[in-house]
Design a protein around this nucleic acid. Structure first.
Lengths: 344, 344
DNA sequence: GTGAAAGCGCTAACAG
DNA sequence: CTGTTAGCGCTTTCAC
């Protein structure tokens, strides 16, 4: 009993420390540290004794203390919109795999598309001294990150660029993808096409709208105000927008949906509609192939992987000036985008 | 310039510390601490000076140091199978929301259904001194967590119970759900029903198989070996299993799919099959309503929320003996499960 | 090959 | 109301 002198203060529910292990094994503190970290310079016999003490005591190194000395946490943070959105799961997982390959852990947090919450989260991660930060921004002013970046937190933005600061960004080609999707509808005979997108504040949303407008203009087609609806992607709003565009004085014959959340609702509304209406959606969706939904697919995993690789390159000292990487999109032809307009 | 004495050692990329802020503001260290933590006992004027110094220096409290003293990290860990699986995204998000309500951050990691990786992850989280741990186990021996639990890490298992240790668990009623789903197929006239599930080692998989067997037995129906296929849920394996069951000497007329991954592949194979085959799947899937896929739905978010609430109750000192909570499932009738067998 | 001493940045305890 | 001292558990440095 007397050989394991316990500290009086049990903050971690009375966890053994290296000091305890050292006492138990009858060695110095530093020797325990060497064994725990696999450093050389310890006899096999000494090591065995230390290992035994570790086992008996159930010792686990306290990484908080370690971090305090080393200055590196081997942790990276990912701030995204909503982990429950099927677009972000694979993205996060891809980041995690890269982090794991570099011996790092990933902490992610959902901003719920709220700029304040994004900031709160990002700064909480910085307070925990993550080595790097990957951000899918909700807000459009990221100057709050300047002190952090200056202090050495590697930072990469994904899916949307940073606002008011210079930083790496890995994006999908929203403009080009949207342009291609809308042009595809036009090529199939449509002249009145509705665009239903996310809030205009969101960069991808604005870019996709721009692609839509460019495609229409390229074809010499007008765009009526009634054909464009931007806003929150909740089903109610989207449903109302779809119905409105189908019933106005100049009803649309096709839709371009600005993201996966929009697409699922549009599909549901159109499923209950008497006549077929064409649709191309931005983002692929599980089972969309079976439903014959034509989409502009982006590779969420590639987005995450690319950003994470960039982050670790920076952490390893490389990188240079902030860069913007744009990944291409793919038109997946499945039927809904090839429906002709009525009477064609 | 002389008022901001910089440390020679720039481990955090030369981050200012409370000491720097104190020097700059011309106050004591503890006063800065008080301001940063919103503690009382500071004049408005002093507070202003400190805030200004914080602003100028870009100071951000180092939570690693704080943790070292306080013994609490305000962080909980979640070990799950794969964040890219649409079942886990909402679960994780639900845990995150509860954590947030308690002022805590969530760290999640994917085990990739590998017991070693699960252990590695869980212990890495413990080394970082998470206050609590939520685990969706891959392995079936969790004795490695005993020292951690004894040391005060609140631990709750979700979706599957712990192996070889006593611990809280929040589960869905896999047995009951499966029983109901298979009984539903039987009620619609099927007598030869195939079961395609995950690896038998996984608790939910075994339970769902048990439910299948019970339903068949209740109806006095035999179960042929050829009608049961357990294993990895990759599309290749599932596809082969489905085809095999459709072409044997006693071909099945209906399938029960053991989880969402299996269901999507079965649906794809059946979509290319000449005659209609009935299907009920465990887990709901996005757009399954439009495809008319009958499922046994479980509420992933409720699972996560319940587990997280349990965790925080424990962290607040409550809880009592380890408990097992079982959440019910819901049969969603959509068409595929109501198809009659051929010739009926 | 091993260990003692110092200190990472913060908070608790106590003194002024 | 404010500041000083000690020390959280670890790694670094340097002496043995």
């Amino acid at each position: 009993m007397a050989d394991t002198a316990r500290r009086p203060d049990h903050r971690y529910g009375n966890r053994p420390t290296m000091k305890d292990v050292a006492a138990r094994a009858g060695v110095g503190l530093k020797t325990v540290s060497r064994v725990v970290n696999g450093e050389p310079g310890v006899t096999a016999e000494t090591e065995r004794r230390v290992q035994a003490a570790i086992e008996v005591l159930g010792f686990r190194r306290n990484d908080s203390a370690r971090v305090l000395r080393k200055g590196r946490t081997a942790t990276v943070g990912l701030v995204l919109e909503d982990l429950a959105d099927p677009f972000y799961g694979p993205l996060s997982r891809a980041v995690e795999e890269v982090a794991r390959a570099h011996g790092a852990l990933l902490v992610n947090g959902s901003s719920a598309e709220d700029p304040d919450r994004e900031q709160e989260l990002a700064l909480a991660l910085c307070a925990r001294r993550v080595d790097g930060l990957i951000v899918i921004p909700s807000g459009d002013d990221h100057r709050y990150l300047e002190p952090e970046i200056r202090a050495g937190v590697a930072t990469v933005f994904v899916d949307r660029p940073a606002g008011l600061i210079e930083a790496d960004a890995v994006l999908s080609d929203s403009f080009g993808g949207s342009l291609e999707g809308v042009a595809h509808l036009i090529a199939h005979g449509h002249r009145r096409i509705g665009f239903i997108g996310d809030r205009p504040r969101i960069h991808t949303s604005a870019e996709r709208l721009r692609g839509y407008r460019a495609a229409m203009e390229d074809a010499g087609l007008p765009v009526r105000d009634a054909w464009v609806a931007l806003g929150p992607t909740d089903p109610g709003r989207v449903r109302a927008a779809v119905r409105g565009m189908l019933t106005g004085p100049e009803p649309v014959t096709a839709f371009f949906a600005g993201n996966n959340r929009v697409t699922v609702t549009v599909v549901r509304v159109l499923a209950g509609h008497p006549r077929p209406v064409a649709l191309v959606g931005f983002d692929d969706i599980e089972l969309a192939d079976l439903l014959g939904i034509t989409v502009i697919a982006q590779d969420a995993a590639a987005l995450g992987r690319t950003a994470a690789e960039r982050l670790f390159r920076r952490l390893e000292g490389g990188g240079g000036a902030p860069e913007r990487v744009v990944l291409g999109t793919t038109l997946l032809v499945r039927g809904s985008g090839e429906l002709p307009p009525p009477g064609a």
